[in-house]
């Protein structure tokens, strides 16, 4: 019996079939660089699922051509653009159906270093072996193209984040991370369901990782590195709202307000609205744009998207 139990312990770490889930929209060239980076991984995912948000550039042709040569590539073309949130929802669902044990979720403009996935897998399995707790996700250090920390992909730590930090295993506990090089185990998806597709864009990753963290926080794995090729290195701050970025901030405000209403009630939303007000005031955001953000927060209070379970 003891031998059998040892065997079962081994099974826990041996079931590491991994599926990469990349959501893309009209960024064929960058997507090809991501696929190149995955090709060079020291621990290649068994499945690479490209979720195409109905791109109108040459994404389809390029991915299909590559998939004809590389059997690990699967291609899911969505009938319309359902945003990053809808893409990650559909992709994670499909990858789950394909039977992977871990899901490496990322954007179409984030290039993992050759050992990024191996380090994530190593960390999440070692953490469990060492401490018995099961991290609900593991996330990489996301760097901008110049090597500095990518502001928008900074994970949020929990209050006792250094509890298991050791020399050589500096894995801080975090409860929120972005969908840029994050590894989610199958059990966490089974327990907590899928990202909320109705969010369309922004805050889908924060809501999802916070939901996963109800079981146990995730871990930040700094030795796993990924380069996020964004046009600039800006954080998400309401002081940065302008005409061009307003549409995204509106989604973000609505989604976070909805989440705060669900998790913390009205007081939490008011506190959030006050924070947004302070940031916009500090950033001299024009009144017209501010009113759009307030309206989005109000909409979020009545927005109750459904969480889809597996």
């Amino acid at each position: 019996m003891k031998k059998l139990l040892c065997l079962l312990d081994d099974v826990v770490t041996m079931l590491t079939k991994t599926s990469a889930v990349i959501v893309t929209f009209n960024r064929a060239a960058k997507l090809m660089k991501v696929l190149d980076a995955l090709q060079c991984q020291t621990r290649r995912p068994e499945i690479i699922l490209v979720v195409d948000n109905a791109s109108t550039d040459e994404t389809r042709e390029l991915v299909v051509a590559r998939a004809k040569e590389d059997l690990s590539i699967r291609y899911l073309r969505l009938p319309k653009n359902v945003g990053g949130a809808g893409g990650f929802h559909a992709g994670l669902k499909a990858a789950y159906d394909l039977g992977a044990d871990y899901f490496w979720i990322s954007d179409d403009d984030a290039y993992p270093e050759p050992d990024a996935i191996e380090k994530l897998l190593q960390a999440i399995t070692s953490f469990q072996a060492d401490h018995e707790w099961r991290p609900s996700f593991a996330c990489s250090r996301v760097e901008w193209v110049d090597g500095s920390l990518c502001e928008m992909n900074t994970p949020r730590t929990v209050w006792d984040w250094p509890r298991f930090v050791r020399p050589g295993k500096a894995w801080a506990l975090v409860d929120s991370a972005s969908f840029v090089s994050i590894l989610v185990p199958r059990w966490a998806v089974a327990a907590h369901g899928l990202p909320i597709a109705d969010y369309f864009i922004w805050f889908d990753d924060a809501e999802y990782t916070r939901r996963l963290s109800r079981s146990y926080p995730g871990i930040f794995v700094p030795e796993s590195r990924v380069i996020h090729d964004t046009p600039d290195n800006r954080g998400v701050n309401f002081g940065l709202v302008d005409e061009k970025s307003l549409w995204k901030f509106r989604y973000g405000a609505r989604n976070e307000a909805s989440w705060r209403r669900r998790e913390g009630g009205l007081v939490n939303v008011i506190s959030y609205a006050y924070g947004a007000h302070r940031q916009m005031k500090g950033g001299n955001v024009p009144g017209k744009l501010r009113r759009e953000i307030y309206r989005a927060i109000l909409r979020g209070m009545a927005f109750h998207p459904k969480i889809v379970r597996i």
Partner: peptide, 9 residues
Amino acid sequence: RDKFLVVGK
């Protein structure tokens, strides 16, 4: 490809 995401094989 569209229903089962299979291309390569």
